[in-house]
């Protein structure tokens, strides 16, 4: 059974149809990349999957692990194992990174019927994952995303993913605003999360992230639907020739 199955999804924002019949299936263990030009509906897709308010689903279905995903609220989806790495992570003044991680992890554990992690175990657990992303205790004591550089924000998103261990992770333009060194660190963090039970959906404008996180499948999103699908070579082709061909076909 597919981990995520989107069929004929049409959705609108403020009465304007953005997704026009999108189909996509992700099996456990697979890494999919969705590439598309600005305005093709990439962010709309990620927000709809994560359950953000303000999007109207006109028709179609989204099934996650066999169940109707659209019937769940944003927090229910997160607790069911869906994780969205934000394109623009949000500042939470006064809330330390450590506190945020602990709160989110304990919510996840409680909803899985597990007990909360004790403070010392938690510290070890987070430090080990943080170190791999070049995040030190100092950064964890700072307030979530407040005064973070672009690279710090994205690394902190990946750390949250590593701590929460979702079954389906959606990375929304995680490469934007990253220099090449930060990109490598983030990609390593993502690659470490690959596994037979986990699905990854990487949404990006550029191919360069896919040099480091090599996808199993690449899709081109144009005018609100999947215009083409292929292997990793499709990404290279897009890099070379651009999106023009797909926009014409779709139009």
């Amino acid at each position: 059974m597919a981990l995520l199955e989107i069929s004929g999804l049409r959705a609108a924002v403020d009465g304007k149809e953005i997704l026009t019949g999108l189909d996509l299936a992700i099996d456990p263990g697979e890494v999919h990349a969705i590439m598309g030009p600005n305005g093709s509906g990439k962010s709309t897709l990620s927000h709809i999957l994560a359950g953000r308010d303000g999007y109207e689903v006109l028709s179609g279905t989204v099934r996650y692990d066999g169940a109707d995903l659209l019937a769940l609220s944003a927090d229910e989806r997160a607790r069911a194992g869906i994780f969205l790495a934000f394109q623009y992570p949000v500042e939470l003044p006064g809330v330390t990174g450590m506190n945020f991680l602990k709160t989110a992890l304990n919510v996840a554990r409680t909803s899985r019927g597990e007990s909360e992690m004790d403070a010392m175990d938690f510290l070890k657990f987070v430090r080990a994952r943080a170190a791999k992303l070049g995040i030190d205790d100092d950064m964890l004591r700072r307030f979530v995303n407040v005064g973070f550089s672009g690279g710090e924000k994205k690394r902190f998103e990946i750390l949250q993913m590593a701590v929460l261990e979702p079954r389906l992770a959606i990375l929304d333009e995680t490469d934007s605003g990253l220099d090449i060194d930060a990109l490598k660190v983030v990609a390593e963090g993502v690659n470490a999360m690959r596994g037979p039970d986990r699905g990854l959906l990487i949404i990006t404008h550029y191919q360069r992230l896919l040099d480091y996180i090599v996808p199993d499948h690449v899709h081109v999103l144009a005018n609100g639907r999947i215009a083409a699908s292929g292997g990793k070579e499709l990404a290279l082709e897009l890099e070379e020739k651009g999106y023009a061909r797909f926009l014409e076909v779709a139009a």
Partner: peptide, 9 residues
Amino acid sequence: FYCRARGLT
């Protein structure tokens, strides 16, 4: 939304 996307009600 950011907090809810991390599972908080």
